[in-house]
Structure formats: structure tokens, C-alpha cells
């Protein structure tokens, strides 16, 4: 006996298991970042000057570039899923490949940004703003790394499943895409909150 609804949707919910599970996971992720944003708001209100005096300028140009990179990776992620919907494994490989490359570009830009700060002696303990900056962006980076690991697997050895169970494979890609868009979504909020306001 196999576990039902891994490929097709259950009639009364209209969902397959993975999708429901992933949305539940994302709901908990929203609450995780909710806790962090709540902390940010409370600390911000508690400090008369924000960012506190002496906070170094953040690299807005680099962060804008990274925003564009993540948005691009999001759209290629969904195009890779659309390719599977058209039964086009080559297209999937191409777009998923671009997504992965974009993920790495994001990480490189981010490390460059961190390096620029750290080499000038700006560390998390510098002041409470830098603490918020490092903690929130680094948690986001961890999410990017997690997503990349899954996508590399699905792009490489994981894609063999396309030949044995194509329905389930495109479900996996859809779920991975949902997660990746969420990572993008978090960045869309982090970017103005940390860099611009």
C-alpha cells in the first residue's frame, strides 16, 4: 500500500500532501520572521535615534542588485516548473540552472557585503542596528543556502524521477518553487526595512 495523494489532489481539499505541508511550513516561517520583525519594531521604537548614531552606511547599490537577482531567480524558478508542465525537461534544466546560478550570485554579493563590513571592524556587537542587520540577513542567507541545496539535488540526481514518476517530480518542483518565492518575499521586506528606512 502506498500513501495516497502524493501525486494527485485529494478531492475535498483539492491539494496533494506536499503542497499542504509546504504551505503549513511557510506559515510557520512567516511566524519566525514575524518574531524577528516584531523584535525590530520594538527595538526601533525603543531607540530615539534610528539607526543609532555612528551606524555605518549600508551598501544600497549592492542590495538593490541582489534584489534584482532574487526576483530574476524567482521568475526562472516558476518558468522551470512551467517547462515541466509542457513536458520539456531541457527547459526545466535550463531555467532551474539559471535559478541556481542566481542563488549563488546572491550569496557572493552578500559575502562581499559582509566582508566590506567586517573588514572595517563593523560586527554584530557594534550597535543594536548592526545586530539586527546581521541576524536577519544571515537567517535569510541560511534560507537561501537551504533552498540551493534542494534545487541542486533536484536539478541533478533528483531529476531522474521525471522518468519514473513525472507527476510527483513536478509537484516537488512546484513545492521547491513555493519555498524559493517565499525566500524572495522575505527579502522584498528585508530590503526596504534594513537598507532604506
Amino acid at each position: 500500500m502506498d500513501i495516497p495523494y502524493t501525486v494527485s489532489a485529494r478531492k475535498d481539499t483539492g491539494l496533494y500532501n506536499g503542497k499542504l505541508g509546504l504551505w503549513l511550513f511557510l506559515a510557520s516561517e512567516v511566524m519566525l520572521f514575524g518574531g524577528l520583525f516584531s523584535a525590530l519594531v520594538l527595538i526601533r521604537v525603543g531607540n530615539a535615534v534610528w539607526p543609532p548614531a555612528g551606524t555605518p552606511e549600508l551598501n544600497v547599490a549592492l542590495a538593490t542588485f541582489n534584489t534584482a537577482v532574487l526576483i530574476t531567480s524567482s521568475v526562472t524558478a516558476i518558468l522551470s516548473w512551467a517547462s515541466l508542465a509542457k513536458k520539456d525537461l531541457g527547459g526545466f534544466k535550463k531555467y532551474m540552472g539559471i535559478t541556481i546560478v542566481c542563488g549563488f550570485i546572491f550569496l557572493m554579493a552578500k559575502s562581499f557585503e559582509y566582508y566590506g563590513k567586517l573588514s572595517h571592524g563593523v560586527v554584530p556587537s557594534t550597535n543594536v542596528f548592526m545586530g539586527v542587520y546581521y541576524t536577519m540577513t544571515f537567517l535569510h542567507v541560511l534560507h537561501v543556502i537551504g533552498g540551493l541545496a534542494v534545487m541542486i539535488y533536484l536539478w541533478g540526481p533528483g531529476s531522474k524521477m521525471w522518468h519514473t514518476n513525472p507527476g510527483r517530480f513536478s509537484n516537488r518542483i512546484e513545492c521547491t518553487g513555493l519555498y524559493w518565492h517565499f525566500v524572495d518575499l522575505v527579502w522584498i521586506f528585508l530590503f526596504p526595512v534594513l537598507y532604506l528606512l
Binding site: 524567482s74 521568475v75 524558478a77 518553487g177 513555493l178 518565492h181 517565499f182 518575499l185 522584498i188 521586506f189
Partner: peptide, 9 residues
């Protein structure tokens, strides 16, 4: 955020 959640997701 709405665009990403609404269309991409």
C-alpha cells in the same frame, strides 16, 4: 509581496 504571493505562488 502581493505580486509574488499572488502570481508566482
Amino acid at each position: 509581496g502581493t505580486l509574488v504571493a499572488g502570481y508566482f505562488m
